[in-house]
Simulated assay, not measured.
Amino acid sequence: MMKPVLRIDGRGACAVSGFPMLDLPKAAWNGGMLVTTLVLAGPYFTWGAFTLFITVTYTSLLIGHSVGMHRLMIHRTFDCPKFLERALIYVGVLVGVSGPSGIIAVHDVRDWAQREPRCHDFFAHNKPLPMDLLWQLAFRFRFERPPTVDIEPHFANDPFYRFLDRTWRWHQLPLAALFYAFGGWPWVVWGVCARVIVSAAGHWTITHFCHNPGDGRWSVRNASVQASNLRGMGLLTYGECWHNNHHAFPESARIGLEPGQTDPAWRLIRLFECSGLVRNVGHPRARHEREDLIDAPPYDFVAH
């Protein structure tokens, strides 16, 4: 069984006290990608560029964000050789949201806040979607009493990941050069600018709906935010939409736990496991280890 990774020390911290404040680098990055897309996507539209956009957006989010950054780097739901770990996380960096440490910090602080008895609207995602998107794409939360984030040495001391933390935005440039060589400016506009802003906005849109009332059979004891499953969205979201399951079993590499809950990222992990590249795959913990869950059904999941 994979052990949960604890990076947050919330002693003395408060998940309510504070306020969202403008984050100029984040706002400039996402705002620049948005404005460029709105101005140039139409004039530079070609079917080849649009096909590139769809293909690279989906595969980078599937391979890099869902498998690499979320299920491997953040939750450590499986182990793999260093070369594969770095490759998966690098693809996650190419998504264009943040570097490895930034992704870990944003995720873990949010997860900590949501599991507190009360948390600010910034973390609860209960404002209307336009306001929530504005906050997530252009603001950061300034705590009055912040928690401490302690990223484990495996990532914090790795020179490759530290390099990616310093340079993550610049890695769009070689990608842009490659796209320009094959498809000119249409491929750059759609393959970089449109892809980055749609990836970021799409991520936070799914996050918004997954943390508002909806379908789900699990409740996490004393948590101020209970996650929802989004029916019919498994293929589009790589399996991340089964978020009620994920809040209950963050140690599981598989998020689509029930029949009919499509989980493409899990299928990729299983492919790696069958090829011998992945081991120690995490599954939902047994009944007697679910004291933190309310009204948990009396059965164990069967991995497949």
Rank of each mutant, 00 (worst) to 15 (best):
V188C: 05
G214A: 08
Q172A: 05
P153L: 14
S199V: 03
S199A: 15
S199Y: 03
H203G: 09
W168H: 07
R145A: 10
S199P: 00
D158K: 09
H154D: 15
V149S: 09
F209W: 13
V198Q: 00
A177R: 06
P153F: 15
A194C: 15
G214V: 04
V192M: 07
A156N: 11
H208A: 08
A194R: 01
C210H: 00
V149Y: 11
I197A: 05
Q172C: 03
R162S: 08
P213H: 10
Q172I: 01
L164H: 07
A194L: 15
T148F: 13
G184C: 08
H154Y: 13
P186R: 06
H203S: 14
H171V: 08
R166Q: 13
C210T: 10
T167S: 11
F160T: 10
V149C: 13
C210Y: 00
H171F: 03
F163V: 08
H171A: 08
H171P: 05
H208L: 10
R162I: 02
P147V: 02
W170L: 13
I206E: 04
I197V: 14
A156F: 02
A181D: 09
Q172G: 02
I151G: 00
A176H: 02
A200H: 06
V149M: 13
Q172M: 10
H203E: 12
V149F: 13
V196W: 01
A156E: 09
L173I: 14
R140Y: 10
F179C: 06
L178D: 04
I206R: 03
F209I: 02
F179L: 15
N212W: 08
A177D: 06
G183T: 09
G191Y: 04
W185C: 01
V198G: 07
L175Y: 01
L173A: 12
N157V: 12
T148P: 11
R142L: 12
H203N: 13
V192C: 11
W170F: 14
G214I: 06
V192Q: 06
G202C: 12
H208Q: 12
G183N: 11
